[in-house]
Structure formats: structure tokens, C-alpha cells
């Protein structure tokens, strides 16, 4: 008799736990406010990444198309997998002296691991990460970028870094 009682108790307790679980799930079923899905391409305008989001590397330019990069090559050295290449050339400055200057700053987005060492180590704060995250392209060549091309984005206000 005791065994039978235990048997029935066991069934009752089991059913109770099952019902608690079902209450959780059906509770969510009947509360559509809890839905967390973001409708991505539609919410492009409102979707804002955080300021520090490491999207892709870029070199802010002023309105006169100048930048602060000196071509020192620290970012190239510090990059763990060689996704930055710096080409320099000798050029006369205002005083008529030949000075080493940046020619092309090549950035391989396809190899970048977004560790942030280049931005942190840059002595003249010439490169920053922007917030773009839609990197998909149909041509692999497009992932190799030249950062110091004229007409790049105007320098923004100092970031919170």
C-alpha cells in the first residue's frame, strides 16, 4: 500500500514539474513584448554600434586632405599578422629638406583580426577604428584598402578611447 502511495506521489510530483516548465514557455508564447529579434536590414538607420566597436581601420583626414600619419611604421611592426603595409617616399617639406613621408598605407581587411594594437600604439593617433560592420564584398581585391587616399572621412571629434 505504501508502495502504491509512493508511486502515485512520484507521478504527481513529476507532472507538477512538467507543468512548471510548460508555464514558462507558454508564458513567453502569450507575451509578444518579450521578443528580442531585431529586423536587421530594416533597422539599419537606427542600428548604431558602440563608439569603441572595432569595425575597420580608417585614417581620419582634415578638410584640407591632410592626415597626421608620419609613416613611422610602428603599426606595421606591431600588427601580429601583417595586415598593414606602409610604403614611404622622400619628399621636400616647406623648408626644402628631404623628409621621409607616407606614400601609401595599405590595409588588408581580409587578414585583420581586430586586436587593436595598431590603434593603441600609433604615436600620432593617425588611425582609428570606424563602426562599419558590413564588410561583405563580391571581390576579394576590394578588401585591400588604401587608407590615406584623399577625401577620406573628415576627422571626427576625439573618441572616448
Amino acid at each position: 500500500m505504501n508502495g502504491l502511495l509512493n508511486y502515485l506521489k512520484e507521478i504527481g510530483a513529476g507532472i507538477k514539474t512538467l507543468l512548471t516548465g510548460m508555464r514558462v514557455t507558454s508564458g513567453y508564447f502569450f507575451s509578444p513584448k518579450e521578443i528580442v529579434t531585431q529586423k536587421y536590414p530594416e533597422n539599419r538607420d537606427t542600428l548604431k554600434m558602440f563608439d569603441r566597436f572595432k569595425g575597420e581601420l580608417e585614417m581620419p583626414h582634415t578638410a584640407e586632405n591632410t592626415h597626421t600619419c608620419t609613416g613611422c611604421g610602428i603599426c606595421e611592426n606591431v600588427c601580429p599578422n601583417g595586415s598593414i603595409q606602409i610604403l614611404t617616399h622622400k619628399k621636400e617639406n616647406e623648408e626644402g629638406k628631404l623628409v621621409k613621408q607616407l606614400h601609401t598605407h595599405i590595409y588588408h581587411l581580409s587578414m585583420c583580426t581586430f586586436c587593436g594594437l595598431c590603434v593603441k600604439n600609433c604615436p600620432s593617433d593617425a588611425i582609428v577604428f570606424n563602426q562599419s560592420f558590413e564588410h561583405a564584398v563580391f571581390d576579394r581585391q576590394k578588401l585591400t584598402k588604401v587608407l590615406n587616399k584623399p577625401g577620406s572621412i573628415l576627422k571626427k571629434e576625439a573618441k572616448g578611447l
Binding site: T25, S26, Y28, F29, E34, I35, V36, T37, K39
Partner: peptide
């Protein structure tokens, strides 16, 4: 749709 609403999703849309 049912499983999506249970799981806080929108489901096919």
C-alpha cells in the same frame, strides 16, 4: 511560428 514565439523570436517573416 509557435516555436518562435516560445523562444522570443519572430519566426518566418
Amino acid at each position: 511560428k509557435v516555436c518562435a514565439f516560445i523562444q522570443n523570436r519572430l519566426g518566418p517573416n
